Simulated assay, not measured.
Amino acid sequence: MDLFRSAQAVAGSQGDGIVDWTAVAAAAKAATPSGDLDLSTEEQQGYRTDVREARDRLRSVGEVEFDLPETIEIQNRHHWIDANIATFRRVVEPLEEQSTMFPGVSRAVNTGTMAVTLGFLGRNVMGQYDPLLLADTDSHSLYFVRPNIQRVAEQLAVDYPRFRRWIAFHEVAHAAEFGAAPWLPGYLEDRMQAVVTDLTEGSLNREAYKELNTAMTAVEGYAELLMDQAFDEEYVDLRAKLDARRKGGGPFVQLMRRLLGLGMKRQQYERGAEFFEAVADARDIAAASAVWEKPENLPTDEELDSPGRWLHRVEK
């Protein structure tokens, strides 16, 4: 970790845009140890086995058909930062058209903010299913950040191969959702673009934001239900330890979680999981999977708190 070199990269930001993305990458990586990526043959095979068996179990338990993403990578933290620069850039792109009174100062502040954000996430993200929203491609990707998975397994005092398998099941569950709902990336993109575009004009598109949040609650909740049903080992201890970890951390970690909306993400997990658990209890997992048949089957914000109303509507 070289905080001085990170600060130098931010201070030297240049270009015509509101963010110097080359400086973002340099600063984020300078402030973030890359981590070890020296995998044994056995560990490489372990990742492949975990992903393949997660796919097979999720297909069977969820009664959903899907394929694994074309790109599956085991990464260090710097690899993850590089992979996500393009994603952040696509989201921020509509803001590039805005002018500022002090472009140089604004660019440095924006560049520093993005670098801190990517650095923090790069040190904490363990796995990521990336549908490449707002990209000119239909490709999807699956990433595992090996140094973070190892570190958290040690912190939680759990067996690394078992914990690695748990992360694989979680991320492949997201692949199952997007594989079962080819319309989902476009649905999310439309609402994301509407929110970002209105923000550039100084307003919030509340309807688009509400629909985006509701859809992501369904995405997170269904994945929780599916992986809990499909995971082929005891997981109660893993769930309890991960929940405790999400609530812990020092003042900086807590601040970053609030700024990045990670508390909201946890609420999406919990609210969505409660909804789909109620649906599965009333019917079965196959009934819950009906949510991905078409956009109209997504629950409304009100239905998330009344699963019976959603069931009555989609089963008509």
Rank of each mutant, 00 (worst) to 15 (best):
D38C: 03
L68V: 10
F66Y: 07
Y47I: 03
E53R: 15
P69M: 05
S40G: 12
R57Y: 08
Q44A: 08
G46A: 12
Q45R: 15
R52V: 00
R59M: 10
F66E: 04
R48M: 04
Y47Q: 03
D38R: 15
D56P: 00
E53W: 13
I72G: 00
S40M: 03
L68H: 07
E53G: 08
E53Q: 15
G46Y: 13
D67Y: 05
Y47D: 02
Y47S: 02
Q44E: 11
V64Q: 01
I72D: 04
D38S: 14
R55T: 11
Q45T: 03
R59T: 13
D56M: 11
G62N: 01
T71P: 00
A54M: 03
D50L: 06
Q44C: 06
D38N: 15
D56G: 03
S60K: 13
S60L: 06
E73L: 12
S40T: 10
E70W: 15
D56N: 13
G62H: 01
R57V: 08
R48C: 00
V61E: 04
E43C: 03
E42Q: 14
E65Y: 01
E70D: 12
R59G: 11
E70S: 13
D50I: 02
T41E: 14
G62D: 07
E42G: 05
R59S: 14
